[in-house]
Amino acid sequence: HITLTNLITEETTHVVMKTDAEFVCERTLKYFLGIAGGKWVVSYFWVTQSIKERKMLNEHDFEVRGDVVNGRNHQGPKRARESQDRKIFRGLEICCYGPFTNMPTDQLEWMVQLCGASVVKELSSFTLGTGVHPIVVVQPDAWTEDNGFHAIGQMCEAPVVTREWVLDSVALYQCQELDTYLIPQIPHSHY
């Protein structure tokens, strides 16, 4: 019994991606959610070859190996599938703050939850000092008015990073160091 759908849910078992011959794909929301959820992320060749051979072929032979941004053979989907007991964002409290493009905020929040993070909706909701690490995620190029994202640091004691930190961490299924993704914050004294 196979159901085809464009939506990823808890029940989804396989995410089928358009890939090149070496099982490398573009980074899409579907790709990120498939990895975050520990699903099989496979090339569409799995479907076409299975139909051709009239049997369901082994997914291992068709698993996506990499993507056009993070590298052609990083094995993120395999790492995620085999590490669902070791979520990459466990112990983190993440607030997805401000506008985002090409990806609804609720989907970004679901993605970080699938990776083990707790989501907070407001900067004031962080449970500071409880052994949980707060992180604010923003997408600077989605902000149309002044660079308000440079002043988020005044509203909460949390590192502010770009959305790329989430996307790179999920694609590779390895929590990336914050340093290269940090957004400089204007210190309090400048006000």
Rank of each mutant, 00 (worst) to 15 (best):
V161E: 00
G91Y: 07
Y44V: 12
G153T: 05
R163Q: 03
A171T: 07
I186T: 12
L167R: 03
N70P: 00
N73A: 03
C115A: 12
E11P: 09
R72A: 11
Q49L: 13
T5F: 06
G116W: 06
V41S: 00
P99S: 12
G66Y: 00
I94M: 15
R90I: 00
L123V: 07
H133K: 15
C25N: 01
I88S: 00
C115I: 15
T13S: 07
A80I: 00
E26S: 12
V138W: 09
E82N: 08
G116Y: 03
N102H: 13
V41P: 00
H188Q: 11
G98A: 14
M111E: 01
Y97K: 12
L108S: 00
K55Y: 13
W110Q: 10
C175L: 14
R27P: 02
V120G: 04
K55L: 15
T13L: 01
I8E: 03
L108A: 03
E164D: 09
K87A: 11
I51L: 12
I51W: 09
P77L: 02
A36L: 02
T5R: 13
F100L: 10
E63R: 08
W165M: 01
K78P: 03
D20E: 03
T105A: 14
R54F: 05
E10L: 11
P184L: 02
M17F: 00
T3Q: 10
G71V: 03
L167T: 12
D85Y: 09
V47H: 00
Q185S: 14
V170E: 03
W143R: 06
D61Q: 11
Q154A: 09
T12S: 07
Q185P: 12
Q113K: 14
V68C: 00
P104S: 07
E164Q: 07
D85C: 11
E10P: 07
E145R: 06
G98K: 03
T180K: 05
I183K: 09
V42I: 13
G71S: 06
M103R: 02
I183T: 08
N102T: 04
H74S: 04
Y97L: 06
L92A: 05
E93I: 14
I35R: 00
V136K: 03
E53L: 03
M17T: 12
Y97F: 05
I2P: 01
I152T: 14
M111S: 04
F23T: 01
M17S: 03
I94L: 07
S169M: 01
Q185G: 11
V24Y: 03
S124W: 13
W40T: 07
D106C: 13
Y44L: 08
F89S: 03
L108M: 05
A21I: 13
Q174L: 04
R163C: 07
V161S: 06
H1V: 07
N73I: 12
Q174V: 06
E145N: 14
R72K: 06
K18D: 04
R65A: 14
E109A: 09
K52I: 08
E177V: 08
E93V: 07
L108K: 01
V136S: 01
V41D: 00
M17N: 01
T28Y: 03
T19Y: 00
T130M: 12
L92Y: 10
K18F: 07
R86P: 14
G91H: 10
V161T: 03
C96M: 11
A117Y: 05
G34S: 09
G38K: 13
T5L: 14
K55A: 10
E11A: 08
E157S: 12
F89T: 02
S43R: 01
Y173Q: 08
K87M: 08
E93R: 04
Q84T: 14
Y191S: 07
E82G: 14
L182G: 13
W40I: 09
G91V: 06
D168A: 01
F89R: 00
H188R: 09
P140A: 03
P184A: 15
L178M: 06
I94T: 05
C95H: 11
C25T: 06
T162A: 05
T162K: 04
I8N: 13
H190Q: 14
I94V: 05
L182H: 11
K78L: 14
S124L: 06
L33S: 02
G148V: 06
I94Y: 00
T130R: 12
E122T: 08
M56S: 05
S189I: 14
P99T: 09
K52L: 10
Q176T: 03
I135K: 03
A80H: 04
R90V: 07
I135T: 05
I8S: 05
